[in-house]
């Protein structure tokens, strides 16, 4: 497509979306609906050509799909793939009220399979190794035995932050006395975390706005 035309479409859609900052209007609605429609169509096409064709049709009918699936030439059909094909069709029974219950079998397989697949990885990467990462020395020394103040302070903050945060979510004992103070410190740790996350989100949004402003600048530059 012509670059100038692309710049005009880019700029027009950007201005239509930004017009919502003033108030809701038909231009914004048009751009919004266009975005939803194009995204849905794109994902549907990708779903067919990148999911169904290579992962299912290419396995069941390799000679038929040899023109579009690399490596399918000369491969014999793999009929095990009839099982996921049937499960996939079962999902579509949701469209027919009388047979909709059949879709639960496929959903049960998806939920069970995903849980079984993900649980060990999350348990290992997000729990056990994370606990290991918190078991660190509070006093850090260099090779000569000198105290590294920065690293030691960092480790102390990390360990205390984790303990205070965990205590805040420990509801089996009433948060009074020492536990109350630690729990209160845990709230501060959480607030700092949320604040940092919010700061990062602001940075992300400003980055996107900067990208749009640069695009508008390129469009104006093509005119003047």
């Amino acid at each position: 497509m012509d670059v100038t035309l692309m710049l005009w479409i880019d700029a027009a859609l950007t201005l239509m979306i930004l017009s919502f900052l003033y108030r809701d209007n038909p231009f914004y609605k048009f751009a919004e609906h266009l975005f939803v429609g194009v995204s849905a169509a794109y994902l549907m096409a990708v779903g067919f050509w990148d999911h169904l064709v290579p992962n299912l049709l290419g396995k069941l009918f390799p000679s038929l799909m040899s023109g579009v699936v690399p490596g399918a030439v000369g491969r014999s059909p793999d009929y095990y793939y009839l099982i996921p094909a049937i499960f996939g069709l079962l999902l579509l029974t949701r469209l027919i009220d009388r047979w909709a219950w059949l879709s639960r079998w496929a959903l049960a397989f998806i939920v069970g399979g995903a849980a079984g697949f993900n649980l060990p990885r999350f348990l290992d990467s997000d729990f056990i190794i994370q606990v290991q990462s918190t078991m660190i020395p509070l006093v850090v020394l260099d090779a000569s035995g000198n105290l590294l103040w920065g690293a030691s302070f960092s480790h102390v903050v990390l360990v205390l932050g984790v303990i205070c945060g965990l205590v805040y979510f420990f509801f089996s004992v009433e948060h009074k006395g020492v536990l109350g103070h630690v729990s209160r410190a845990g709230i501060w740790v959480l607030m700092v975390t949320f604040g940092a996350a919010f700061g990062y989100t602001v940075m992300a949004r400003i980055s996107l706005l900067t990208g749009r402003m640069e695009a508008l600048g390129a469009w104006l530059g093509s005119i003047f």
């Binding site: 990467s125 190794i129 290991q132 990462s133 996350a197 990062y200 940075m203 992300a204 980055s207």
Partner: peptide
């Protein structure tokens, strides 16, 4: 990672993640 996802990724550093570029910064 984008600045939005960066806070979720920092806990993996340094044991599971060698390094991280958080957002535009």
């Amino acid at each position: 990672g984008t600045a939005v996802v960066a806070p979720e990724l920092y806990p993996y550093y340094p044991q599971q993640l060698v390094g991280l570029m958080g957002g535009l910064k």
